[in-house]
């Protein structure tokens, strides 16, 4: 088990932020729409995503020798079902916001050259040591259709509880 568990994939990237760009990047991320308006909502396969900046490491006093960062770093993590290549293609095609967040980071090549974009993300990727989920093979579509189907089953059961066998059978075959 590493980046993958079943068909689920955990992508974790760390990118060094260009000096002086930290505040603009923070402000940009904080202003991004969430929920259905999130850039990641355009990608069917994505379950989760988080994009954040960190500027310093927490000092675990008193026995830690302090680690002081020279730069801010951007952490982008996504969880999706499918292959990494397809995910990077989808990011490049449907998420122009990548140019904004990674555009504040060193060596980012942009999205125009898909191969360069994919190579960049792979170059800043960190290998997951352990990745776990209770639904490792469920795609985003599986989740959506399962939730809708369960609601439909509940509604059908409530609406047909007093029907005789013939009518129940007929309505079931019609509904499903």
């Amino acid at each position: 088990m590493s980046n993958e568990n079943g068909t689920a994939y955990a992508l974790t990237t760390y990118a060094r932020v260009e000096t002086g760009h930290e505040d603009a990047l923070d402000a940009y991320l904080a202003a991004l729409p969430t929920g259905a308006g999130s850039p990641f909502a355009r990608l069917d396969g994505v379950h989760l995503a988080r994009v954040q900046v960190f500027r310093r490491l927490v000092h675990q006093r008193p026995h830690q020798r302090p680690d002081r960062l020279r730069h801010a770093h951007l952490v982008v993590s996504t969880t999706f079902n499918g292959g990494l290549d397809e995910h990077l293609d989808a990011l490049a095609e449907h998420v122009p916001e990548c140019d904004e967040w990674w555009g504040h980071c060193v060596r980012y090549p942009g999205r125009e050259d898909r191969a360069a974009f994919a190579a960049y993300v792979r170059s800043i990727q960190r290998r997951t040591s352990l990745f776990w989920t209770p639904f490792p093979t469920a795609t985003g579509d599986d989740v959506r259709t399962s939730i809708a189907l369960r609601a439909q089953v509940i509604e059908f059961a409530a609406a047909t509880q007093h029907l005789d066998a013939d009518e129940l059978h007929r309505r079931f075959l019609h509904a499903f």
Binding site: D26, L29, A30, L32, T34, G35, S38, P39, F40, A41, V46, H47, L48, A49, R50, V51, Q52, V53, F54, V75, G140, V143, R144, I147
Partner: peptide
């Protein structure tokens, strides 16, 4: 680690 943006398809 706080801040940034967060997305969940089935929040």
């Amino acid at each position: 680690l706080d801040g940034g943006t967060y997305y969940c398809a089935h929040a």
